[in-house]
Nucleic acid binder design. Structure first.
Lengths: 195, 195
DNA sequence: GTCTATACGGCGATAGAC
DNA sequence: GTCTATCGCCGTATAGAC
């Protein structure tokens, strides 16, 4: 199907360009040219630039979920979390070069105002939710589970910002190692789901 | 002096707007109108938009240094660090609403490429350097001092990103509390400056 | 030094032929 | 469904009167 192919190529191109150059600095013409689709044709698939951005976010959400699907085979929630954190290593170079694709987009969307902010945040919201469930399964109270999930995501985002700012991947690697160590040593919670 | 006054007003206006709307989304016209200076006159004070941005970064660097000056009166490096971390509380609301002014600018500048990236990073570089000195004075080896400095800055930046994304200041407050606790309990280093 | 008017380019979005 | 041509707006930067 030619349609789906072009649409897919546009999403892929937009995803990459939003990451590398930022949303605000990526024009429809940039996306069209990278996807090798004529400029005007883009508007057949996406009504506005914001629409394209929302689609990219949905696409990223699906990707993140798919990557976690594989982890659900692991029997222990602790191991799932550690495997998840370890998987961050694959993107160290890209994140050092361009920052976190999701984090950058959230920040940009928030400055723009409007409904895009919520669209961009769905990936983080979903990640936090998944991590929270793992910590609940480890026996932590809901409050702790939320706090720990935020610690992982926040720690990672902070390390990426530093790595990107100073073009130094070591910040990311150190944080991954620290999170892994912390998860490994963390005593399991006592309550059954914090009851 | 009318000159210095206008220049100052332009810097202040640009500082605020870069924070609230982002650099890429703030036009010279926006800055001029916020500072109540005619559009064309801006170019008498700043050659280009990038020039204005560099000036704002220098201005922020000076502010951060001035705020730390007061802390140098404290005799213990640990207390200086704790006081520094505590001072983050003042900006919790603004950071929740608009993100970290410095972090946002660094990220944007990195996406733009060119020399702006370095201009934007000077504030972080200077903060890290100051924190590193405090940890050295506490007796930590240089490697640990750098790592700990990055932990404070990274932890803070990550918490701000989450707070901004979800419009929830609690992320920032929790991280401040965690850093304060960590600094309070951290055993002093053994070596004299890591020797 | 100050301000107005405007040149010039780029971008989002659309019209309309095929 | 596909693609070209183009409209209209906004942004940076400059020219030049005062």
């Amino acid at each position: 199907m030619v349609q789906a192919d072009k649409r897919e190529r546009l999403i892929q191109a937009a995803d990459g360009l939003f990451h590398q150059k930022g949303f605000e600095h990526t024009s429809i013409a940039d996306v069209a040219s990278a996807a090798e689709v004529p400029l005007g044709n883009v508007y057949y698939y996406f009504k506005t630039r914001g629409d394209l951005m929302r689609t990219v976010s949905e696409h990223r959400l699906a990707s993140a979920r798919a990557r976690r699907e594989g982890l659900n085979a692991l029997p222990s929630p602790r191991d799932r979390l550690i495997a998840w954190v370890n998987s961050f290593e694959d993107s160290t170079e890209e994140c050092t070069a361009y920052g976190c694709p999701i984090g950058s987009l959230c920040l940009e969307a928030n400055k723009l105002g409007g409904p895009m902010a919520k669209d961009a945040s769905v990936v983080f919201r979903d990640s936090l939710e998944w991590m929270r469930k793992q910590f609940l399964e480890m026996g932590f109270a809901d409050r702790m589970a939320r706090e720990y999930a935020a610690r992982i995501l926040g720690g990672r985002q902070g390390s990426i910002l530093l790595a990107n700012t100073f073009k130094e991947p070591e910040y990311i690697r150190l944080e991954i190692a620290r999170l892994r160590k912390w998860l490994g040593e963390l005593p399991a919670g006592k309550g059954r789901n914090g009851k």
